[in-house]
Simulated assay, not measured.
Amino acid sequence: MSASQEASPHAPAQGGLRIAAIVPCHNEEVTIGKVVADLKAAVPGMTVYVYDNNSTDRTAEVALAAGAVLRRETFKGKGNVVRRAFADIDADVYVTIDGDDTYEAADLPAMIQLLLEGPYDHVLGVRQDTGETSSYRPGHEFGNRMFNRLTGWLFKSEVTDMLSGYRVFSRRFVKSFPAISKQFEIETELTVHMMALRLPCAEHPVGFRDRPPGSESKLSTFKDGFRILGLLAQLLRHERPTAFYGALTLLFALLSLALGLPVVVEFFQTGLVPRLPTAILAAALMGLAFLMGGVGLILDGLRRARRESARLHYLNLEPPVPTPAAQVPVPGVTTRPAAGGHGIG
């Protein structure tokens, strides 16, 4: 292992605060050197961790040469990298940013300053195009807006750019985050965790640009989109079981009534039940409706207990308390709080 890998990973940055930047990478040799250099220039003293996720090019060598602390995660997927990094790294402030050089590192001091001044537990970098044409791939901008609105509707909160990979976290956010996702849906899980625990959060505009020539995107519009929809369904089932199972209860009850009412009417008119299979099916569907309703009520009680436990664990962790020297001076920065701090109803 090289000397760069053995460099002190917990050296204090601004005013004694330990700031760690986590950069997941898979085949990013074209961009990772610039990303590491830009991050270290933006926040001197910050430790930059590059997690090599099964790269087949020179990503690791370039990252080491740029001064990053190199870590490796063999389980493929950004979610696996974030879970490993959040478990392994001990810091006061955490930064996540992609290694593709699409985000503006110069915006990071303002995001950290906003986190400390809030104080907030999560600052989301809201992407703003820096070029004349949109930096979003075809379909991604529409999909992002759709997921923002869908998540806001499902979880009774608002978020402007839930798929952004540029974020700043407090230690108590990171150490209370379960990190279940495996791949690019990790951003959705981070957003819903913030909403579920009603954590104080803010948004900050950040520059966003196209990948440089020779750098290839790992995203798949439809595959990743369906994966995010699947995660949203799982999170809805876990975080709002009364709504999820209530919808199933209503569906089964309506089907039961639609099938069973004609049978009941015919019985009262003739005294006969000629469509016995339909009657049995209607009764079974109504039984399922009551079962789904009961499951929803039980899981809602378990959800409340789980959320109370997570909240108490979160409160046991200290927020970053900046000294005057810890403030990152950024003149003329304008920020706005996000509505994402509102919780799930």
Rank of each mutant, 00 (worst) to 15 (best):
A3C: 03
A3D: 10
S4V: 13
Q5W: 02
E6K: 07
P12F: 06
A13Q: 03
G16Q: 03
G16R: 00
G16A: 09
V30C: 07
V30E: 14
G33C: 10
L39I: 13
D52C: 12
N54R: 10
T56I: 09
T56V: 13
T59F: 04
A60G: 15
V62W: 01
A65E: 14
A66P: 07
A66V: 10
A85E: 12
D90L: 06
A91T: 10
Y94H: 05
I97C: 13
T102K: 01
D107N: 15
A110G: 15
M111S: 13
Q113D: 15
Q113L: 12
P119R: 08
D121C: 13
H122G: 06
L124N: 14
G125D: 08
G125F: 01
T130E: 10
P138T: 06
E141W: 02
N144G: 11
M146P: 00
L150F: 02
T151M: 14
E158H: 08
R171I: 11
R171E: 14
V174P: 07
I180P: 00
A196Q: 08
L199T: 07
P200Q: 04
P205M: 04
G214A: 11
E216G: 01
S217F: 01
L219M: 12
S220Q: 10
K223V: 10
D224A: 09
F226Q: 10
I228F: 00
I228K: 08
L229N: 03
A233N: 08
R237S: 13
T242I: 06
T249Y: 01
L250C: 07
L251V: 09
L255H: 03
G260D: 08
L261N: 02
F267S: 08
Q269H: 05
T270W: 02
G271M: 07
L276M: 14
T278F: 01
I280S: 06
A282V: 12
A284E: 10
F290T: 14
L297Y: 03
G301R: 11
L302D: 11
R303G: 12
R307H: 07
A310R: 06
R311N: 06
L312D: 12
L315P: 00
P324W: 04
V328S: 10
P329C: 07
V333P: 01
P337S: 11
G341Q: 07
G345I: 05
